[in-house]
Every structure is written in C-alpha cells, then in structure tokens.
C-alpha cells in the first residue's frame, strides 16, 4: 500500500513536469535513453564487439555510423554505450543521492550535536576536489567500473546533503511533523514516510544533477584512459575514437555522436530536474 503511494506521487509529479515544453523534452529524452539502454540487444543491428564490416567504413545503410578501426559497427556501439554510460550515471547518482539524503535528513531532523558533526563532515566532503581525486584513485586502483561508480558516489553527495538538511529543517517546523510524532510514528518512519515524500521533487532534482555530473565525469575519465574498457560507454567510444585516429581521418561519424549523446543525456536530465524544480516552487 505504501509503495503505491510513492508511485502515485511520482506519477503526479511526472504529469506536472510534462506540462511545460521543456519538461516534455526532458521526460522524452530521459525515457528514450532508458528505453534504448534496456532494449539495446533488440535495437542494436549488430553486436558491438563483432566484426560486422570492413574497418573505417563511412556511414551507409548497412552501418548507419560506419565502422571503427577493426570493423565493429559504430551505431551498435553507440546503442550499447547507452547502457554503459547510463549504468555509471544512474548508479553513481543513486549512491550520491542516497548518502546525501540520509545525511541531510538525519542532520536536519535530529539537529543538535549529531547534526553539527554531520554538517562539518559534509563541509569537508564539499571542498574535496572530485576530478583530481578520481584521477589519482583511478590511476592507482586497477580500472574497474565499480571503483569509478563508488568514488563518484562517495564524493559527490555533499551538496545534496546541505539542501536536504535545510529543507528538512523547514519542513520540521510545520505542525504536521509534530502531529506525526503524536500519532505514534517513530523517528525513522517520520523521516522516510513523512519528510522524504514531501521533499521528493527536490531529491529527484538533485538526483538529476548528480546523474549528469556522473556521466560527464565518467566519460572524462574514460576519455583520458582511466576508465574501464570492459564497460562500453560513450566515453570509451571517445577514447577509442581519439586513439584510433578518428580525428586525424576526419571521421566525424565516430567521435561526434558519442559526445552528442552525452550532451543530450545531460540535457534530458537537466530539463527533468528543472521540471521538478517547478514542483518544488509550486509547493513551497
């Protein structure tokens, strides 16, 4: 029953977001990318690592984006790359949001000494330089998707925590939170069932931003060779594009589409986030 409540809330929010043109585009793009990622095996014309043609082919009907240096279809790689990029983006964002929301909720709800301590920790994490740290870690630890996801997640939750804490403080002052206590709900229930749903638009907003940032960072890491080749993503495509002379040859059909996809995914998330911001503004 309670899960239904969450879904119905999410559905309502989606409808509100969809009221604006930018919201529609955001929903469309994000949903589209998820669709592609999930149904990649059925959409992709070839297996991404299968030699399906001659090397360095130009775009044609058989190979919409041509082939790479070993004859693998680039369009299939692009489609499968959606999985890789989305995996990192969404998972890292989920970790980041989970940590940020947890810290923010607890700090805002309990306050006092524990709240202070949490906020000081948040401040420290906030000023850690994410990308340099990532580069250092990635060059030490053997390249693995999981490391990348974990590090992005663990280092980027701070802004979310601050915002969620301040939102928690302001919600906490409203009588219905006290009324929930008087109704016998315990602290955890209040944080998760009362406060969190009332902050859902904000959480999704920050989740969207976290996802964008994660995708871009991951692509960046891949591009400079610190990513994991086994996880095919757009960043990896760009890495190979650079390494296998796509630029030199002017094979724009190789290096342009992945970059474009990163930008589009980012746009989709941001527009979605903006739509959520509308909800936050309307309700407060």
């Amino acid at each position: 029953m309670r899960v239904l409540g969450w879904f119905s809330a999410l559905w309502r929010y989606t409808k509100i977001v969809g009221e604006t043109t930018s919201g529609k585009i955001g929903i469309g793009l994000t949903a589209g990318f998820f669709f592609v990622a999930i149904f990649a095996p059925w959409i992709s014309p070839y297996a991404p690592t299968a030699t399906s043609g001659l090397p360095y082919l130009k775009p044609s009907l058989a190979h919409i984006l041509g082939t790479d240096d070993v004859g693998e279809d680039l369009f299939s790689q692009l489609i499968w790359g959606t999985r890789g990029s989305l995996l990192v983006g969404v998972t890292a964002a989920a970790i980041s949001v989970f940590l940020g929301v947890s810290v923010g909720l607890v700090a805002g709800y309990h306050g006092g000494k524990p709240g202070e301590v949490l906020m000081r920790v948040t401040d420290v994490v906030l000023v850690l330089p994410l990308l340099p740290l990532l580069i250092v870690i990635a060059s030490i630890v053997p390249s693995s998707v999981f490391v990348v996801i974990a590090v992005i997640g663990i280092l980027s939750w701070a802004p979310t925590a601050r915002v969620i804490r301040s939102q928690t403080l302001s919600l906490r002052a409203r009588p219905f939170v006290d009324a929930s206590r008087l109704s016998g709900m315990n602290d955890l229930e209040i944080m998760v069932k009362v406060l969190l749903p009332n902050m859902l638009p904000l959480v999704v907003l920050y989740g969207a931003f976290a996802a964008v940032s994660a995708v871009v960072i991951e692509s960046g890491l891949d591009f400079i060779g610190l990513g994991s080749i086994s996880n095919l993503s757009w960043g990896i495509m760009l890495y190979f594009a650079l390494g296998r002379d796509a630029l030199l040859r002017g094979s724009w059909w190789w290096f342009l589409p992945p970059g474009l996809m990163i930008a589009l995914l980012g746009t989709g998330f941001i527009l979605l986030g903006n739509g959520m911001e509308r909800i936050v503004r309307i309700r407060s």
Binding site: G5, R174, P175, F176, S180, V194, P197, N198, R283
Partner: peptide
Amino acid sequence: QDPYSTFNPL
C-alpha cells in the same frame, strides 16, 4: 493552530 499545515499534504 494552523489548519493549513496540520496535516501531511501527501
């Protein structure tokens, strides 16, 4: 006091 915020809106 405030009937408008005494209930969880959700």
